[in-house]
């Protein structure tokens, strides 16, 4: 297996998406549109939280969904994930996956606790004053 090809430099030609980005860079429109979307979503969240403040299920579901959309908008457009290559996702996805695994595996011990929680809490007897040795 003799090596004749050019060395694999860490430099690659631009993807079509990057060329498109360069063309788009002239216009601010996408960024301002995204900003507008983020603002609208924030107001939506505010109103939604107010409206559903007593219904935990829909509250959590709706708000987390909106937050996820906002976070993805910032990531996709502002952090230019839209134009990035695979390697960025190879860095990000394991981190996100591990974040999910860690949080999910914490649930059985803290959220789905086994001991009956409505058991009356017994007052601990007051410990005697320390004996003077």
């Amino acid at each position: 297996m003799t090596e004749t090809a050019e060395p694999t430099l860490p430099v690659a030609p631009p993807t079509p998406a990057m060329a498109e980005a360069a063309a788009q860079a002239e216009a601010h429109a996408p960024y301002l549109k995204v900003l507008f979307g983020l603002m609208v979503l924030t107001i939506l969240e505010y109103g939604y939280a107010r409206f559903f403040k007593d219904a935990t299920g829909p509250l959590v579901f709706g708000l987390v969904l909106m937050a996820a959309v906002k976070a993805s908008l910032v990531g996709w457009y502002f952090m230019h994930l839209k134009f990035e290559r695979l390697w960025v996702f190879l860095v990000l996805l394991p981190a996100c996956l591990l974040a999910l695994i860690l949080t999910a595996l914490l649930f059985p011990d803290f959220v789905m606790r086994q001991e009956p929680l409505d058991e009356p809490v017994r007052q601990a007897p007051r410990a005697p004053a320390p004996a003077t040795a």
């Binding site: 050019e6 430099l9 860490p10 430099v11 690659a12 030609p13 631009p14 993807t15 990057m18 990035e84 290559r85 390697w87």
Partner: peptide, 8 residues
């Protein structure tokens, strides 16, 4: 080869 944008 070196003049294209370095994505990384």
């Amino acid at each position: 080869a070196d003049a294209s944008p370095a994505p990384a």
